[in-house]
Each structure stands twice: as structure tokens, then as C-alpha cells.
């Protein structure tokens, strides 16, 4: 590796990428869950004016990039950003910025606090070295706005609906609005004469029924997180696989994420994405290993 190449790798590590224009760089900034303060935006604006060419580029991972920064200005620009608490993003074979939708803080469909989870994942894994790039996303519900299954690890809010007879007026609207037609009504022999049921195999654990029922007869039975592993887009796309459909505690989510992450670091070949490693070794083998380790881990406590 030449000195020049080594420098490029070092700069990439701190979120600075060489442009095709000699001596000019892209500064990739970090925004966990896509959040920046207005003050930070103002500072990014002034840095782009002063050291870039007065524009910014929005990345697909909720980040901002400042383009056309001359190599001599990288350090002063970085310091000016750091003054407002703006950190550099990540490039190369390491954990990238954690993306997240707004979650249950502001969205009617959100069932989990996506931003808190994204911040915790950021604190634990951001910029950790991996065999290839490694992307994590947190999305609040099955609408999947931040595309959990396009990421190496995706976490998606999930609910299991429960029908409460006492509130139901038998309007049958849920049978129609369920996006996957998982809700059915059937006649019964008891005094009620009817019952609504959800087919667990086709239910996608979204929150449409619990949010839209006019009389709140569909309530949240269990709430948790679906953990996906091995998603990627890029040259050889692969949709993520479900590691576990409903994980009820945050603690278990972090445990599973940690196991999956460690498994990839130990078994992934250089430049091999997590999902392709899973295909090479076998999904069932990987899942069995990860879920088994989690159970053992619990027993030790």
C-alpha cells in the first residue's frame, strides 16, 4: 500500500472521501436517525459556503455530505463542524450511520422508540471495523419506512393484535382494511354469535388494525421488535431474513444484534457482506447458532 493509499484509507475512516477532482474531498457527516438541530444545519451551511462550493448533498442514509472541500481545508472544516457537535460519518468496511424513522414519538403507526434504539446502536457500534460495510436501520412498524430488510441488521417495531369482544360492535371493517387480509370473522355457537380472528401466519405485525378499529376492539396483545439479518442492496441485492419475529425486550434485541455482529466479524470474508456470508454458510445454521447462543446466555443469568 502506497503512502497515498494509506492516507486515503485513514481519511475514509473519518468520513472523508477523495473526489475524482484531484485534491478535493467529500466530507460525509453523521446524523443518527437523520436528526440534526437547526443550529447544526446553520453551521453545515456556513461550512459548505466557506470550505465547499455552497451546496450540500443528501445521502441515502439520512446524512449530509459537503462536496468540493480542498484537502488543505479538511481540518479547519472538521473543527468548525465539531464546535456544533457535528461528527464525521463513516466510509469503508465499518459500521455506517444508523438510520431510523421518527418512530412512536411522532408517528401514529410507530410502535417503538426508534430514535432511542438508534442512538444506543450508534454508541455501541458506530465505526466498528467489519469485513465489509455494515448498515443498521431501525423502523417503527411494518410500513418499514427506513427499510429494515435492506440493511445488514434491521430492527422493526412489531405488534401482535388481540381482539376484545367487549369493545367490538361487529362492524367488520377490520376484515377489509387489514393490508394482508389476515383478519377473519366467523360465526360461533355461543351467545355472541361471532368472533374475529387473526391468522398468525399471514399477519405482518403492523399496527393498522389496532390503530384504525373505530371502537378499539383490536388492542396490542404483544409488542416488540422483529430482528432482520443479512439485507443488502448494491451490486448483489439480498433481502434480509427474519432472525426472530417478535422479540419482547430491548435487552434481547441488543443481545441478538451483538451475537449477529460478532458472528459476522468472526466468519465474514473480506469484502463479503453479512447476507452473502449467511448464504454461503446457510441461513438455518446461522439462525440456529444465534438463537441458541441467546438462550444459553439467558440461562447463565
Amino acid at each position: 500500500m502506497s503512502d497515498n493509499n494509506r492516507d486515503q484509507a485513514a481519511l475514509g475512516k473519518v468520513g472523508m472521501m477523495r473526489q475524482i477532482q484531484p485534491e478535493y474531498y467529500v466530507m460525509r457527516l453523521k446524523a443518527v436517525a437523520g436528526d440534526l438541530t437547526a443550529r447544526q444545519l446553520a453551521r453545515i451551511s456556513s461550512v459548505a459556503e466557506q470550505y465547499g462550493r455552497g451546496f450540500v448533498h443528501l445521502s441515502t442514509r439520512q446524512g449530509i455530505e459537503i462536496h468540493y472541500v480542498h484537502q488543505d481545508n479538511l481540518e479547519p472544516a472538521r473543527l468548525a463542524l465539531a464546535e456544533e457537535g457535528i461528527e464525521m460519518g463513516a466510509c469503508g468496511p465499518r459500521v455506517r450511520s444508523i438510520v431510523a424513522c421518527p418512530g412512536d414519538e411522532t408517528c401514529r403507526w410507530g410502535v417503538i422508540d426508534t430514535k432511542a434504539m438508534a442512538r444506543e446502536l450508534d454508541a455501541r457500534y458506530f465505526k466498528a471495523e467489519t469485513p465489509s460495510k455494515f448498515k443498521l436501520a431501525v423502523t417503527g412498524c411494518a410500513h418499514n419506512c427506513t427499510k429494515a430488510n435492506e440493511n445488514d441488521i434491521g430492527i422493526r417495531g412489531a405488534i401482535e393484535p388481540k381482539w376484545e369482544r367487549s369493545s367490538c360492535t361487529d362492524c367488520s371493517l377490520c376484515v377489509s382494511f387489514c393490508p394482508v387480509k389476515a383478519i377473519g370473522r366467523r360465526e360461533t355457537d355461543d351467545s355472541d354469535g361471532f368472533q374475529y380472528e387473526v391468522d398468525e401466519n399471514s399477519c405482518i405485525n403492523c399496527s393498522v388494525c389496532t390503530s384504525l378499529c373505530p371502537t378499539n376492539a383490536w388492542v396490542v396483545g404483544r409488542k416488540g421488535y422483529t430482528v432482520f439479518i443479512g439485507g443488502t442492496m448494491g451490486k448483489v441485492p439480498r433481502f434480509a431474513s427474519v432472525l426472530k419475529r417478535i422479540v419482547e425486550t430491548e435487552e434481547e434485541v441488543f443481545d441478538l444484534v451483538d451475537k449477529a455482529f460478532t458472528c459476522y466479524r468472526e466468519n465474514g470474508l473480506k469484502k463479503e457482506r453479512f447476507g452473502h456470508m449467511i448464504d454461503r454458510i446457510g441461513l438455518e445454521n446461522i439462525k440456529e447458532g444465534l438463537l441458541e447462543v441467546t438462550v444459553q446466555h439467558k440461562k447463565q443469568r
Binding site: L173, S176, S211, L212
Partner: peptide, 9 residues
Amino acid sequence: LINVVRSIN
């Protein structure tokens, strides 16, 4: 349907 029901609710 989802949009209309949501607005009515």
C-alpha cells in the same frame, strides 16, 4: 380505505 377510515376516526 385506510386513509378514509383514519380521517373519519
